[in-house]
């Protein structure tokens, strides 16, 4: 067994985060699971223990709320005894029509998906810088690659997060600290439960978790998952506006 790593997961009840945590539990790591629902956190924790995690701690915290974030973050680190890999996974898809009709909803989405996420990422970055090593992974989305009428509120927040991670990766280039921005396409998780699934564009959260694991090992600053979204988004980003405007996406 390799030395157990210290894993911090913000948004540990996310389906993608949970599948990745299983990979980590199987290799015997120590995990601190942060989320807002204590019932779900304890269900996830039991599973990870059964799968072989050396220790699983949980912390209840509403991550969209950033009041006292530095102190809360310090308490996470204290309980875990430092951090080797941090995954920022939480997010809400929201509904574009609601965001347009109700600025409180719009603000709540931006706060969850961008504002708070950037703050937690910055806190992780600070800890890794002090430690001189470690990995920050955050889940952004292909939706952040170009604004589309169907979900630009969500997309803009993820775009902001992607740029923030880009900046962090730049800051740590040439150091032992790794920053990974994960950009999934369509993933079959509770976030997309309302959508009819199937077809080659849909990935399982297990697949995304494996891609995250590989990206960490290879220290890739940006990873599209599954990989073909890199090509899809390259095309979408470069479509001339005339054509783009006629597409209903």
């Amino acid at each position: 067994m390799p030395e157990p790593k210290k894993i911090l997961i913000l948004g540990a009840t996310s389906a993608i985060a949970e599948r990745w945590a299983r990979l980590r539990a199987t290799r015997g790591d120590r995990l601190l699971l942060v989320g807002r629902d204590p019932g779900k956190l304890s269900i996830v924790a039991d599973d990870l223990r059964a799968r072989g995690a050396t220790e699983v701690l949980v912390a209840e915290s509403d991550l969209a709320d950033t009041d006292g974030a530095p102190q809360r973050f310090a308490s996470f680190l204290e309980r875990l005894g430092g951090v080797d890999v941090a995954l920022v996974a939480y997010g809400v898809l929201g509904n574009q029509a609601d965001a347009q009709a109700d600025t409180d909803r719009l603000e709540q989405g931006l706060r969850t998906n961008f504002l708070s996420a950037a703050i937690w990422c910055e806190l992780v970055a600070g800890a890794l810088e002090t430690a001189g090593a470690g990995t920050l992974v955050a889940i952004s989305s292909v939706a952040g690659d170009r604004g589309r009428r169907s979900n630009y509120a969500y997309g803009a927040a993820k775009a902001g997060l992607s740029v923030y991670l880009d900046g962090l990766a730049h800051r740590f280039a040439g150091t032992p600290v790794t920053v990974v921005a994960v950009k999934p396409g369509f993933v079959d998780t509770p976030m997309t439960a309302h959508v009819q699934k199937g077809g080659p564009l849909w990935a399982t959260p297990e697949r995304v978790a494996e891609d995250i694991e590989r990206a960490i090992a290879k220290r890739r600053p940006v990873v599209y998952t599954p990989w073909f979204w890199w090509g899809v988004m390259l095309i979408i980003r470069n479509l001339p506006r005339m054509i783009f405007n006629r597409m209903n996406i």
């Binding site: 269900i43 996830v44 039991d46 599973d47 059964a50 799968r51 509770p190």
Partner: peptide, 18 residues
């Protein structure tokens, strides 16, 4: 199939609840 978690696995007795 989304409910795929282990609840308790006793590695000494081999009793698995999932």
């Amino acid at each position: 199939t989304g409910l795929d978690r282990a609840i308790a696995f006793d590695r000494t007795s081999g009793i698995l609840r999932a």
